[in-house]
């Protein structure tokens, strides 16, 4: 069997300036993110907020599924664990957002550890089924918690204030979420450059060989389950603040699947892929609605919701069959052509 030894993301000795170029790209991305809401209309600021928030949830999932090879449908459940832990801490102890997010991350890590335990015994379809079961059990627990703590309508979040500063405006909400997303991106980048990251890749490629190299497969798996769930749960608090409320009806299996679709479309195991996928999947309904409004109600455009459902399914199928390395694959091949051409 011929397999390339070095994963593609590791620095290639033939490109000594790759690190510099990478830093340049990161600076450019930050500049775009900061400048965006100052340039575009409030509507597009909302779209951008949705995309950045989606990235903050898809990126930890990509760490778990793309890098560590643990296919999970449990991410909506981790979001609700985070949102309700955050709500409980905020309402009961009158805590500020950062504290609520830290407590939610701790709760997410604990629940992620438990949901990850089956991964030590099960693999493939069986492991996926265990995350499906975990989703429904956790959402049901959240429903019971919701009924006892917040009432039937769910938790209503107040406008976001941190240290007395009102952050509930569209722009400030965008900057808060973008800052959190950047932190998530930074954490994941650093993990994947560390020994932990190499252990994760090794466990995904061949767990027996990884164990022979002295990597504790069990510890690595549970660590990545806990870590990704902690980040998703923390994002769940922000998401609930952004939406203004949290109710179990929102946290469906389809929501969980949306984030899996993002990492599939963007590119498995790639942070840039998570960003591209989050933007792409967020933009699909926006574009369909615009088309529907622009070309007013004729034929299938009269039912934008049904059309979105069909297009969403076709996109997933098309990427699996035609572009399994995702949108980041286009970027990589374009970059390769640029390098070789000039």
């Amino acid at each position: 069997m011929t397999q390339s030894i070095a994963p593609p993301h590791l620095a290639d000795p033939a490109q000594p300036r790759a690190g510099v170029r990478r830093t340049g790209l990161a600076v450019l991305a930050v500049a775009i993110v900061v400048a965006l809401p100052l340039v575009v209309s409030p509507y597009w600021t909302t779209v951008a907020t949705n995309a950045v928030l989606a990235f903050a949830i898809a990126a930890p999932l990509n760490l778990l599924t793309g890098n560590a090879g643990q296919f999970s449908l449990g991410n909506a459940a981790f979001l609700v664990v985070g949102a309700y832990t955050g709500a409980f801490v905020t309402f009961t102890f009158d805590m500020e957002l950062p504290i609520a997010m830290l407590v939610a991350a701790a709760a997410g890590a604990l629940v992620g550890f438990i949901v990850g335990l089956p991964s030590l015994r099960l693999r493939g379809a069986y492991l996926l089924m265990s995350t499906l079961a975990a989703h429904y059990i956790l959402v049901f627990a959240a429903l019971k918690f919701q009924t006892s703590q917040f009432g039937a309508a769910g938790a209503i979040f107040p406008p976001l204030r941190v240290a007395g500063v009102d952050l509930s405006g569209d722009r400030s909400m965008y900057f808060v979420i973008a800052a959190f997303a950047a932190l998530i991106g930074l954490i994941i980048t650093n993990i994947m450059r560390s020994g932990h990251g190499r252990a994760i890749e090794a466990v995904k490629a061949r767990d027996v060989a990884a164990a022979a190299c002295g990597i504790s497969v069990a510890r690595t798996k549970l660590w990545v389950w806990s870590l990704s769930s902690a980040m998703i749960a923390a994002a769940g608090v922000l998401q609930a603040y952004y939406l203004g409320s949290a109710s179990v009806e929102f946290y469906t299996l389809n929501l969980a699947i949306t984030y899996v679709a993002m990492i599939l479309v963007g590119g498995l195991g790639s942070l840039g892929g998570s960003l591209l996928g989050a933007c792409f999947v967020t933009l699909v309904p926006v574009v369909v609605n615009h088309l529907s409004e622009a070309y007013g109600g004729g034929g299938v455009l009269a039912h934008p919701h049904e059309l979105q459902t069909v297009i969403y399914g076709l996109i997933i199928i098309a990427f699996v069959l035609l572009k399994p390395d995702g949108l980041i694959g286009f970027v990589r091949s374009a970059a390769r052509r640029l390098r070789n051409g000039g």
Binding site: T309, V310, G313, I316, I317
Partner: peptide
């Protein structure tokens, strides 16, 4: 993923 996409279609 393809069967999920198929279900959506």
């Amino acid at each position: 993923m393809v069967t999920i996409g198929l279900a959506s279609v």
